[in-house]
Design a protein around this nucleic acid. Structure first.
Lengths: 348, 348
DNA sequence: TTTAGCACTCACCTATCAAGAGTGCTAACA
DNA sequence: TGTTAGCACTCTTGATAGGTGAGTGCTAAA
């Protein structure tokens, strides 16, 4: 059977209407809305064809038609028109993302908040994966006799620090040597590579005080590196699902919230998605639990290299055109803001 | 009317039963459970008295009785017995809190997670208010020609840093001078006091390059201080409310989740509570929105001085004895772990 | 003071009914 | 051959009514 021009127009109207109202639509109503001079009976025939082709479903005999995931896919790929953001929203995005940049993390968090506010959906953002981030330098700073601060700086400009409680006394000189030697040994290596090395072993030939220093510091060094490698997940607008009629069921809402709040797993799902703007609709999602959600993710770039993701999750019935435009505009702004974040160093 | 011993025993039984089952209890069932050899009719009379005194309510004529907030209050103050944590739970708490301490923030977050897991309620924790925390030293570290890291260390051992993008060139010497002068000027002052000072003014007599340096750095310095002053709120187990029958109503669940997710406001509510273990039941809460919740908060101490809070929020029908014991055991462990976190310096 | 007995109340469940929206099929029409 | 009107049929939704059971409140007797 052919997808005639008329069938497409009808399908488009059904999808559009359902996205707005969340109500199944009948032939009679649609006939009035379409204003193409075709009678309800004709539309019924067309609808019947579309159903046979898998674009529509029927909650029950006497209900109207509802678009299937396949219909949304067709809509997103072919029928949807480019949505131009109102200038006002553009300004808001520029204002919030570009101004007031202190830390990457904070900006990404703001981006997630903004995204949920503009879309009325649940939004998320993950910070860039640091695995391929390379170490620039390591510095141990004396604070007081019992306290040392470890600072790790990466090529991309990420700085992380930990306070280390010292049980054994240390000298500033030893700390300084340690900083220099570790920097020399590890500079230019990726964080995940460094984590694979045995730091105690690489210092074993040194003097005794040094050995004890390294031993004290090792667990902190490792856990700091591990922390740096953890991507962070920001969520916002999780209560927005309550405004979707399809989540007026307590059981569904619960499943949704539990999935989204299971941060570890949800982060993995997001990280496994391809780069660029990716839309997965309903049963296109590999995860069972996402089967009646749509997920839109986009990629942002820090310094051209580091890659993070952000996006929204909501019912399959969502304003794909609008949401996609908003996400794209936000990621564009993030990319622009963090275009030249760290010195682009030589790789050792 | 007098609260006789028998009335108390009946009330205790009703509260205990309702906490377990969430179902109104009738005279007949209660008579069997109490096993005191009093007939349902007698219990009905006593219940009627207790209702008149405000300890019980009646969802409707033919339902059983339900404890009122006043009954819970009496239960918590007088009837409740001390609950001894099973050794197993104690071990879990000790294990998770005491071991593996890298950062205060992380430990507090783990404490919140633990609390929600052990109580099956929604838990929260806020990091200590830093207003009275005193500065120990400030250090500007050169990273590369365009990048400087600002590091602020407080007496309590809190370390915070920010990466500053330099638009004007700087010399290491100037940075070093700036670090020393600012440390000299601000050491021993509280963070909130420092924020009130005008850093540009205090350097106005210096050479020009220095002035430009200070100007570049000022906004970052201020925002870093502001960030340090923000208390952080960790939430966990928010989907636990779905397992409470009283929140099987989508509207109630929504209100609950929105309140808890409105982090700014919720943090304020928590910060305004008194120190120590505080239980507020239903309408005892000043916030309208908390009227059918109970809130239990406790205080933990860092280094004897800095004070943070953690606790749970749930239906008024909660296992006050058990939950209180768990919270106390957790705060005890936190206090112990962070007893001597920073050197106890002289206050200048 | 306690208890047994009994009438009464209400939520809850189930069945039934009517209304309304929508479909599918058929036959007539252009 | 595609389009349309007509009509029977289906299924949800909301209202109504009756029956059941748990529980109360009152009264009178022990």
């Amino acid at each position: 059977m052919d997808l005639t021009e008329r069938k497409l127009r009808i399908l488009q109207a059904i999808v559009g209407d359902f996205i707005r109202s969340a109500e199944p639509i009948g032939s009679r109503t649609l006939s009035k809305k379409l204003d193409m001079g075709i009678s309800p009976a004709t539309i019924r025939n067309e609808m019947s064809d579309l159903e046979e082709m898998g674009f529509l479903t029927h909650p029950h005999t006497s209900a109207g038609r509802v678009p299937s995931d396949k219909a949304y896919r067709l809509y997103v790929n072919n029928l949807m028109q480019r949505y131009e953001l109102p200038e006002e929203e553009k300004h808001i995005i520029e204002e919030k993302i570009t101004k007031n940049v202190t830390e990457l993390e904070r900006t990404i968090q703001h981006a997630a908040t903004l995204l949920s506010e503009l879309t009325n959906l649940t939004s998320f953002a993950i910070t860039p994966n640091q695995e391929s981030n390379r170490l620039k330098y390591i510095n141990f700073l004396p604070v007081d006799p019992q306290t040392v601060v470890l600072m790790i700086v990466t090529v991309s400009g990420k700085v992380s620090n930990t306070t280390i409680k010292m049980r054994v006394p240390y000298t500033e000189e030893n700390l300084s040597i340690l900083s220099k030697v570790m920097t020399y040994n590890y500079k230019g290596k990726t964080l995940s590579d460094i984590l694979k090395l045995d730091i105690i072993k690489s210092f074993e030939s040194d003097i005794e005080a040094m050995g004890r220093l390294v031993e004290t510091i090792q667990p902190n060094f490792i856990s700091t590196l591990e922390n740096m490698l953890n991507v962070e997940l920001f969520l916002d607008g999780i209560t927005n699902i309550f405004s979707c009629p399809e989540y007026n069921d307590i059981e569904k809402a619960k499943v949704f919230l539990e999935m989204v709040n299971h941060k570890k797993h949800f982060t993995d799902v997001l990280m496994n998605r391809e780069n660029g703007v990716i839309i997965t609709i309903g049963n296109e999602n590999s995860e069972d639990i996402l089967r009646d959600c749509s997920l839109i993710t986009a990629t942002y770039h820090i310094n051209g290299k580091m890659i993070g993701k952000l996006g929204v999750i909501g019912p399959t019935r969502m304003k794909y055109d609008e949401v996609t435009s908003i996400i794209e505009y936000i990621t564009d702004n993030i990319n622009e803001t963090f275009k030249i974040t760290g010195g682009d160093e030589e790789d050792d």
